[in-house]
């Protein structure tokens, strides 16, 4: 494991998001703008160099599936970098609020985004759709913080709130609740899906759970001395599931068991 920090040219040490564009560059989102890494050196983009940055705090990055442009969710606006040119979409362009929390690329190009408690879609035509506030859906509790944009299927997005997975279709205002048999949790933090679109691993306020066939099994819970939320889950190409408990470093989920790595 090699580690790069500010000493190597990163503008700031807290990485909020990562993305790789088709030209091979690795992009790092930080609180002090975006850094482009060529494998040797970092090049910074922030309000000192690029007018589109009203605020340098970056929450999310996504690469456009159609044209390879880079989408950047910041604390004040949605930015797009294409062909060497930065553009910004803000509340004056239909963004429901200044703060863009999360991004997920759409198969048809553009991105799903999470902003001001709503889901929206941005394309090269601008903000093309905004949902109703998620917390006021008739079937849901009033307070539902969006935790993750999980995956796209057709023209629908599956996303995760504190109260569990939801689905919303492009153009329709309200989200529907995704039923999860045999599993309830006080607050969901992150999930992974398999190739068939089924939830297979869940990080919750209570611990970490996996699904085998249709049954959920707790891997680590508060009853076993596990007091950690797991807000980040990631599956690598070999199928290993990586998890990051909030303060306990990094570990792997292997054969239904949690193995700390670092």
């Amino acid at each position: 494991i090699h580690r790069w920090t500010g000493d190597d040219g990163l503008p700031q040490n807290r990485i909020s998001a990562l993305a790789q564009t088709p030209d091979g560059y690795l992009w790092c989102g930080t609180w002090f703008g975006v850094a482009r890494f060529d494998g040797v050196k970092f090049t910074s983009f922030d309000h000192n160099r690029v007018a589109a940055f009203r605020d340098d705090a970056v929450n999310a990055l996504a690469v456009d599936r159609i044209d390879g442009s880079l989408w950047v969710g910041t604390r004040d606006g949605l930015l797009r970098y294409a062909k060497g040119d930065w553009r910004r979409l803000g509340t004056g362009d239909g963004l429901p609020g200044p703060m863009v929390w999360r991004l997920l690329p759409r198969t048809k190009g553009g991105v799903w985004l999470d902003c001001a408690g709503r889901i929206a879609v941005a394309t090269d035509h601008g903000i093309v759709w905004v949902s109703a506030p998620i917390g006021t859906a008739p079937d849901g509790p009033a307070d539902e913080t969006i935790r993750q944009l999980v995956s796209e299927s057709g023209d629908a997005l599956t996303f995760l709130t504190d109260s569990g997975p939801k689905r919303i279709r492009f153009g329709e205002p309200m989200a529907s609740t995704q039923p999860v048999p045999d599993f309830s949790s006080p607050a969901w933090r992150a999930v992974l899906m398999d190739d068939e679109g089924r939830l297979v691993t869940a990080g919750t306020e209570e611990g970490l759970a996996t699904r085998v066939d249709s049954r959920w099994n707790w891997v680590a819970t508060s009853r076993q001395g596990w007091s950690e939320q797991t807000p980040v889950l990631h599956r690598d190409p070999t199928g290993v599931i990586w998890g990051a408990p909030r303060t306990k470093g990094l570990g792997q989920l292997r054969d239904g068991e949690w193995k700390p790595v670092a």
Binding site: W4, R14, I15, A17, V232
Partner: peptide, 20 residues
């Protein structure tokens, strides 16, 4: 850990609260 990425060359990149 704040983020993770598989690059096209087979590398796994981890974004953390203290470096890449």
């Amino acid at each position: 850990l704040t983020s993770a990425l598989n690059d096209r060359e087979g590398g796994l990149w981890l974004g953390t609260s203290d470096g890449l």
